[in-house]
Design a protein around this nucleic acid. Structure first.
Lengths: 190, 190
DNA sequence: TTTTGTTGATTGACGAGTCAATTAAAACCC
DNA sequence: GGGTTTTAATTGACTCGTCAATCAACAAAA
């Protein structure tokens, strides 16, 4: 029973279902059929809207990145001092939205996909570059080696992410934030 | 033209080929046929020796982990002081054997595989636990918070790994080692 | 002649993507 | 407003390809 104006809702449902499915089955054995089923429609309809499985995966990544970007911009907006800006970045990285197990799993798979797929890699580089640029900008007035420190902070955040994704008994979010904050404090004080 | 005593060589070739293939195509679209071709034999022979593709992937993972373990044990053997033991761990993690792009890519994929496959997860946990235990042991006489510091060091190493795997212009190994060493120094001094 | 190595051919399953056909809303026309 | 046509939504059935795994058969060494 076709209602009109379904496209946005269908796309939304498919993007969500793709992320959920990545988290549930892992990117290796994802199928369009399973995604479509989870989104409550036929596989044919999924193809109708996205054209290919590849496009669905990319749409899921774009969603993850744009959610993160929005969150980050919002957090940075209120930060006046460089130190507050740093804090905003860290807290966004470990914010609940980002640390939802589903999203963490999607990120992990995203990393792997970026290893082969040029479009995915491009997307990831944009995110990396923005994060680095934000960090360096905030660090410049505070540190003698903003680039090095930014590199370390980024890597530490990524590493803590992975552990979150892989452990059955994950670290508490506060522990991760505390570790990054310690790292920053020590880096600045030096 | 069957020669005798081929089994070990065939297995060896298949394990190597599996790792190479993971790095080349990504775990998503690996096929037994491609692995076998790279190892210079028929797909049927690969199945003959390993039984299933799953087993090939696990064998490759075990190889990576046992190579790392051997390397780590060797490096630790000569270390007398706790500080030297720390240094040995860091240098092993970023040793040339581990930082071969092929091996880094394989690690990345193993992380993802561990997210679903219980056996892979089990293997990864053993590695994590050993690394953490070694770090904590070396840190105990040096730090007031060995567990926290070990967590941070492990995460930082993992994060730097990922970046190595994903950037086209990767960090120099020395840069990574220096970042970890700075982190340790600051953590101890505190 | 038994054991080990080896492969070509085959099977059986599954999955991405296509297509024709159906339904109902919307738009157009008198 | 009633009728007709267009357009969006939707799916079942199908195609085509691929791939893991099996098997029967053959070759050579022991």
């Amino acid at each position: 029973m076709p209602r009109i104006g379904m496209e946005p809702q269908r796309r939304e449902a498919l993007v969500r279902a793709t992320i959920a499915e990545i988290a549930a089955s892992g990117a290796r054995d994802i199928t369009v059929a399973r995604i479509a089923k989870r989104a409550g429609m036929s596989p044919a309809l999924a193809h109708h809207y996205f054209g290919s499985k590849e496009q669905m995966l990319l749409a899921a990544m774009r969603r993850i990145l744009s959610d993160f970007g929005r969150e980050a911009r919002r957090a940075m907006a209120g930060a006046e001092t460089p130190r507050a800006r740093l804090q905003a970045i860290v807290e966004t990285s470990f914010g609940p939205a980002n640390f939802d197990p589903e999203v963490v799993a999607a990120w992990l798979n995203f990393y792997v996909q970026a290893h082969r797929d040029p479009e995915a890699r491009r997307l990831l580089h944009i995110y990396h570059a923005r994060l680095r640029s934000n960090l360096v900008h905030a660090l410049r007035p505070l540190s003698t080696d903003p680039e090095g420190l930014a590199e370390g902070i980024g890597a530490l955040i990524d590493g803590l992410y992975m552990r979150q994704a892989l452990r059955r008994r994950a670290l508490a979010t506060e522990t991760s934030v505390a570790l990054v904050n310690d790292y920053i404090e020590r880096g600045l004080r030096q």
